[in-house]
């Protein structure tokens, strides 16, 4: 049982006594998410140990092999890609663990995909970039922090700061000229917090001066809740609100009832 599962499960258990089968599906989904983030949650504390230098060295090797062609041999940036000096370990962890880096193809925006590097490698890369100059550290989301986070506060902060781009339930939305605010259904709590702290691509930065760590965890908890919570009223229709609703009203409602009309009006052949 992962941390995530426990905390979300506890939060919901008091309201929803859910049907077992749906609970199983949910638990599996949560467990997968939880495993993903617990795998790298303890990271970020390794900086001062003797291993840290080793991690930096290996990270640099990985960097030279996979990243330097765009970001430059010393991460100073090139015409193609920005400098990585000072972006911090959080940016590396976010970009690489969400598969956005290395970039698959140039476009308006990097797309989320399966990560190319293992979490160990990501940590090494992060350690290397961190060694180039400060910046936000990798996010650490402990089980207790998630348990203690206030879901309602997370919701209020989400609506005030995130919903305008990522949509009320994290389904994502378009920005100008092909850019978009991504769907949050796959984002882990640490990725959510790292995105807030580093402001990847079009996203503004939400630093700790604005949203403290506890509030950031609350937002992450809320995002996980709205993207994973069982829907109360049947199929969510993609969570996009009135557009798919209208489409279904026309296709199923009007389409289905017109078919019924034709059946009623059809001449009976016995």
């Amino acid at each position: 049982m992962s941390d995530m599962t426990a905390s979300l499960g506890a939060a919901r258990a008091s309201t929803h006594r859910r049907r077992r089968s749906s609970a199983v599906v949910l638990l599996l989904a949560l467990a997968a998410t939880g495993v993903l983030w617990t795998a790298f949650a303890p990271r970020g504390t390794a900086q001062s140990t003797p291993d840290a230098n080793e991690a930096v060295r290996q990270g640099r090797a990985l960097y030279l092999q996979g990243c330097s062609s765009c970001h430059g041999l010393n991460a100073q940036g090139t015409g193609q890609a920005p400098s990585l000096i000072g972006v911090g370990a959080a940016a590396v962890d976010f970009q690489v663990s969400t598969g956005r880096m290395p970039l698959a193809a140039p476009g308006a925006q990097a797309k989320r995909k399966d990560p190319v590097y293992s979490q160990t490698q990501i940590d090494q890369l992060a350690a290397y970039v961190d060694s180039l100059g400060g910046g936000p550290k990798q996010a650490v989301v402990t089980r207790n922090a998630l348990d203690d986070a206030d879901l309602a506060q997370g919701g209020e902060l989400y609506r005030a700061n995130c919903a305008q781009c990522h949509q009320a339930v994290g389904a994502g939305a378009p920005l100008t000229y092909g850019k978009y605010a991504p769907d949050l259904s796959k984002a882990t709590p640490s990725q959510i917090i790292e995105a807030m702290r580093t402001g990847p691509e079009s996203m503004p930065v939400f630093g700790p001066g604005q949203i403290d760590d506890a509030s950031a965890v609350a937002i992450a908890k809320y995002v996980r809740f709205v993207t994973e919570a069982p829907s109360a009223g049947g199929s969510t229709l993609g969570k996009y609100g009135p557009v798919p609703e209208g489409l279904l009203a026309w296709l199923a409602g009007i389409g289905g009832l017109l078919a019924v009309c034709m059946w009623i009006g059809a001449r009976q052949k016995v």
Binding site: P204, V205, F206, G207, Q210
Partner: peptide, 20 residues
């Protein structure tokens, strides 16, 4: 002040950040 009523001062918002 932000939505929770807390006043904002220089440094609270990171470069590239926004606050309502």
């Amino acid at each position: 002040v932000n939505g929770e009523g807390n006043p904002v001062r220089v440094g609270d918002i990171a470069i590239g950040g926004i606050e309502t």
